[in-house]
Deep mutational scan, measured.
Amino acid sequence: VPQRAWTVEQLRSEQLPKKDIIKFLQEHGSDSFLAEHKLLGNIKNVAKTANKDHLVTAYNHLFETKRFK
């Protein structure tokens, strides 16, 4: 089981690129989880459509539901 890579403050910070969060989610989330949160596909394309709040919610949801690969 992966550990949380970032704190809530870090997740919301401008310093953390959306692409980093997407990469983490794609590496650790199950396909059904990723599909549900519309996070499947090319990281660049996902970054265009997903806002930061959406990614933070998905990140927290992944750990709450433990839907890891």
Rank of each mutant, 00 (worst) to 15 (best):
F63H: 03
A5H: 15
S32M: 09
S32K: 09
K19P: 08
A58I: 15
K18R: 09
Q15D: 10
L40Q: 10
L39S: 00
I22D: 00
Q10H: 05
D31M: 13
P2E: 04
V46A: 06
D53C: 08
K38H: 13
K69N: 07
L16F: 10
L34M: 03
H37G: 02
K38T: 07
N42E: 14
Q26M: 07
E64Y: 11
E27L: 09
T7L: 04
R12N: 11
N51V: 09
F24S: 02
G41L: 03
L34P: 00
L11Q: 02
F68V: 02
R4S: 08
L25P: 00
H54S: 12
K52P: 03
E27D: 11
D53V: 06
G29N: 01
N42P: 14
K69P: 05
D31P: 11
S32I: 08
S13V: 02
N42G: 10
K19M: 12
I21K: 00
E14P: 15
K66N: 09
Q10R: 02
E64M: 10
V56Q: 03
Q10E: 12
G29F: 01
D31I: 14
S32N: 09
K52T: 06
K18M: 11
S30M: 07
L25F: 04
D53M: 07
H61G: 09
T57K: 11
D31S: 12
I22V: 11
G41A: 05
W6N: 05
I21Y: 01
L55A: 03
D53E: 14
L11P: 01
P17E: 11
L11N: 01
S30K: 05
N42C: 15
R4P: 15
A5K: 15
P17Y: 08
F24A: 04
N60M: 14
H54T: 12
N51A: 09
N42T: 13
E64S: 08
F63D: 01
T49K: 09
L16S: 03
T7S: 09
L25D: 00
Q15Y: 11
F63Y: 10
K69F: 05
H61V: 11
E14C: 10
A5V: 14
G41F: 03
L16N: 03
W6K: 04
V46D: 03
P2V: 07
N45E: 14
A47P: 03
N42L: 13
E64F: 10
F63M: 03
H37W: 12
R12Y: 15
A47K: 12
R12A: 12
R12I: 10
L40A: 11
A47W: 06
L55P: 00
V1M: 11
S32H: 07
D20Q: 10
L62I: 04
N60I: 15
D20A: 08
V46R: 06
L62G: 00
S30C: 10
Q10W: 04
K44H: 15
K69A: 08
R67D: 09
G29V: 01
K48T: 12
V8C: 14
T57G: 08
K23E: 13
T49F: 14
N45V: 14
W6G: 06
K69T: 05
N42S: 11
H28Y: 13
L39A: 02
D20P: 05
W6H: 09
V8K: 05
N51L: 08
E64P: 01
E9M: 04
T7P: 08
K44T: 14
T49N: 09
I21M: 03
E9V: 04
F68M: 03
L39N: 00
R12C: 15
E36Q: 12
T7F: 04
H37Q: 08
K19H: 15
S13A: 04
R67G: 07
D20M: 12
Q15N: 12
D31R: 15
T57H: 13
P2L: 05
S32Q: 10
K48R: 14
W6P: 08
H37L: 08
S32W: 07
G29H: 01
K23F: 07
S32C: 14
K38W: 09
T57Y: 14
S32F: 08
V56R: 03
F68T: 04
L40C: 14
L40V: 12
H28G: 02
G29M: 01
L55N: 00
A50W: 07
V46Y: 04
D31Q: 12
Y59S: 01
T65V: 05
H37I: 03
N60R: 06
D31C: 15
L39Q: 00
F63G: 01
Q10D: 14
K69Y: 06
V1P: 11
T65M: 13
I43G: 06
S13Y: 03
R4L: 05
F63A: 01
T49D: 12
K48W: 08
E27M: 11
N45T: 14
A5L: 15
D20V: 13
A35Y: 13
A50T: 13
E27W: 05
G41K: 06
I43C: 09
Q26K: 07
A5C: 15
R67C: 13
A58K: 02
K38M: 14
L62Q: 00
